[in-house]
Write a protein that binds this DNA or RNA. Structure first.
Lengths: 254, 254
DNA sequence: TGAGATTTGTTCGTATGTATC
DNA sequence: GGATACATACGAACAAATCTC
């Protein structure tokens, strides 16, 4: 409530003022910084509001224009490029393509890389196999409407799901690949959610701007008998996705 | 895989090199940057690894020492101040104190502020009351072992749960307050998870350093009949908490 | 049609902070 | 520590596009 504007930006913090202001603006655009029509206050007003020079505000705006968040038109003003955040449902039946279907026109999953390798400790533990047992590693990326939304690294028991990489390359879907390999159904056992700054690989794969945030999920899927079939670590672009965790308490309303 | 060290730090990104390296080190300390004993590589090694001058690495280390992440001892080396991330379980029976109990010795919830106010649109919609209907707003903060882990703003129907604020002030628990007000049980209906940079209020309430990340959950709890009883927005310090979402695949299935 | 106000875009100059060698 | 290069931030002025009356 009672925030004073003088304390808004921190100097000598190791983060340039224009970037602090860009981050702030990105956050506050939805909370009244822009008006209902998506029009931003003029640069001079923003400069006064943040207590900085107009050039500094312009640098921040330029960064957000580059990101695709804002659009500036000479003589008219600066406007918000509206883009909604996709809802990614997490439930016992979490499936990537099902979940995002209907929210975006063009949904695409791509296999970036794959290999058969000794299972690392966490993956082996989750899959219930001995560390070092051969496992299939799948590196995939998913895009909605041409924008990358997530990057996943999955592990499968190589003995049980030998043709996983080829199946995924063909079907572009984990669900369809499982089915092709004889597994008709699977369920989500657990999901651990954390968030952190995007690292260099995230910035490249998800086409993010420095300082962006990724939501990281570590998930385990099991078959109908409760045996683990997939261990995966997925990184979501936090500004493009929100996770919707359904309680089993009901789907009555809305 | 094939990451070259030259691409690790980005110049003219608006973030000073020492801060980028500090952020990187904070992230990678758990992933092998420090050895098992928590000892960091010498400054010259770090400088070479990140492709920067030793002075720049020293600035980064100084920032992390200031933050309490590292501890430097002249002549001996630099060491990690270890602190683990608490697991916050999310399920149909999500309860704050139960979830964190056993992971920390000292768990404390505090009522910061409360008021009866017209319910804002989202809260009203979730609670199934008309916008503007009187609702109780609770502002709470939770600490584990003396460190703030989350900050919540909750809304309750004022008509049904009149004594909520007083009950919470006394019991310091939502579950116990509900019980005192005649609601024996409740279930988690939905949880929406997003992540963003901490704003000024987060930095203050959760005692974070600038640039830190908060995980934001928007949750709705319902009673046994499926009627909404609580709408809350909670901000977790992302470096102190991870959310554990239980699928129902492990327990009783429907 | 046009004049003035508003708003973004550009170019000077200057000072300070950051990073390297 | 000193020299150098570049990024960041400020200030002032002007240009170009758009809107209003």
């Amino acid at each position: 409530m009672g925030d004073r504007w003088e304390t808004v930006v921190e100097r000598r913090s190791g983060v340039a003022l224009w970037r602090q202001i860009a981050d702030r603006m990105r956050r506050e655009i939805g909370a009244g910084l822009a008006d209902e029509a998506g029009r931003m206050p003029p640069e001079v007003a923003l400069a006064q509001r943040f207590g900085v020079n107009r050039h500094t505000v312009r640098s921040a705006i330029a960064a957000l224009v580059q990101e695709g968040v804002l659009r500036a038109e000479q003589g008219r003003g600066t406007f918000v490029e509206k883009r909604r955040r996709l809802a990614y449902p997490i439930s016992e039946r979490t499936r990537f393509s099902d979940g995002l279907a209907g929210q975006s026109r063009d949904l695409k999953a791509t296999l970036l890389d794959h290999a058969v390798e000794p299972a690392p400790d966490e993956a082996a533990a989750a899959l219930g196999i001995a560390p070092g047992t051969p496992a299939i590693r799948l590196e995939t990326i998913s895009e909605a409407d041409g924008r990358p939304v997530s990057r996943a690294r999955s592990w499968f028991d190589a003995e049980r799901f030998g043709g996983m990489a080829e199946a995924f390359a063909r079907t572009r879907s984990v669900t369809a690949s499982f089915r092709a390999l004889g597994l008709a159904d699977y369920l989500r056992l657990s999901t651990v959610v954390t968030a952190r700054h995007a690292d260099a690989a995230d910035l490249r794969d998800l086409r993010l701007s420095p300082g962006a945030i990724v939501i990281v999920t570590i998930a385990v899927n099991v078959d109908a008998d409760g045996r683990p079939v997939q261990y995966s670590e997925t990184r979501f672009a936090a500004d493009r996705i929100e996770l919707h965790v359904a309680g089993s308490a009901g789907k009555a309303r809305d």
